[in-house]
Design a binder for these strands. Structure first.
Lengths: 203, 203
DNA sequence: CCTTCAGGTTAACGACCGCTAACCTCGCTG
DNA sequence: CAGCGAGGTTAGCGGTCGTTAACCTGAAGG
């Protein structure tokens, strides 16, 4: 991960603010004038950077899904090189998802909330990326907990996503008991949830 | 619970369809004409039953929050009468929440998604009910897992809500491996998540 | 120095949306 | 049976929203 030092482009500013506003008030609840105002230009000036409001949401959602999937693939590949067993890979996946959820709360919110506002083609793309991401988790989870059937594993993965993506509900930013504390707690809970899911099937 | 046999009133029909549509496409994404069409009347006919579109959302959200809180209080009281210890109460709370999440998926979706579209007074009321519900869980959780600090317990409760409320993401209705199977899996995972949160603090 | 063009501006259009007004039509009920 | 209220209807108003059109400006380049 090369950390950026140069200033964000206007385009990136717009995406960032749009994500925040969409997450706060919903896609239909935010006007283009507001997005413009948030970056210091006004209304239709946005159309120099994006063909329309939909395009901003599309780029955001495709970006998130792609980032999540790419990161997960990278972690999987890294642990293949190491002596990393399946449990370590699962830990790595959990850690990556938590980092994302804690660092980009607006995006995580949008990710499972505004998908249906996309044009058909974009929605299909995002869903495909999401599906790959889920399948990747499912494989690792089943390796760690062989007692799990495939449908149960998939349900378990979705549920853990729900758990990890709950961070936006945890106090409005300052109230958290410290980032690493929260991350550790979430990590333990995710592991615990998977473990409980994978004990016997039929409980 | 007295099971109703009489037909739902027009008003209840409207609320039911409005909930479904709001959950599918967002509050601002649904027009009053669509809600009307969904119950066989058209557009402004809704105003014979509700003073406005906002009022429908408000009634839905207040209703959910109230139902959840009432149910939880009832379960708490019942277990006080029995020889029910804290772990049994927690199980009962989890079970109740799962029932609700599985039976009223649209409402569970709205519950944490469209709260900000409410008038100030309604929003305050809903938040107050939600807060009471959370606090009730927190107390029980801390009784079962005394190692948990209060902020951690609160975070854990919110996270488990995220886990339990993930049901809308689990396949579009028919794909679930049976209701009781799903309920059991979710229950085990919730217990596992709490247990993992409550082991030591500092992990 | 003139041109070009990226990146803004304001004005305005057309569509849509929530809501109201005005009217209609039953089924009760005194 | 007169009347009246509950629960519909359609027409239309006022406001908002996404988008386009037309215009402006300042910096880069031959």
């Amino acid at each position: 991960m090369v950390t950026r030092t140069d200033a964000p482009t206007r385009r990136e500013q717009i995406l960032r603010e749009a994500a925040r506003l969409f997450a706060e008030r919903g896609f239909h609840g935010v006007g283009v004038d507001e997005i413009g105002a948030a970056v210091g230009i006004s209304g239709p000036g946005l159309y120099r950077h994006f063909p329309g409001k939909d395009a901003m949401l599309a780029e955001l959602l495709v970006g998130i899904s792609g980032q999540l999937l790419t990161g997960a693939k990278r972690r999987l590949a890294e642990s293949d090189g190491d002596g990393g067993g399946a449990p370590e890979v699962l830990d790595s996946l959990i850690e990556g998802h938590i980092d994302f959820a804690l660092d980009d709360r607006p995006l995580i919110t949008l990710h499972d909330r505004e998908l249906d506002r996309l044009r058909d083609s974009d929605r299909k793309l995002v869903r495909q990326l999401q599906r790959q991401y889920v399948e990747l988790w499912v494989e690792v989870v089943r390796e760690v907990y062989p007692a799990l059937t495939e449908p149960s594993a998939r349900s378990a993965v979705h549920s853990v996503f729900g758990l990890l993506n709950s961070t936006p509900h945890l106090g409005r930013a300052g109230t958290l008991p410290g980032r690493t504390t929260t991350a550790t707690l979430l990590h333990r809970m995710a592991r615990g949830a998977f473990a409980a899911a994978g004990v016997a099937e039929e409980g």
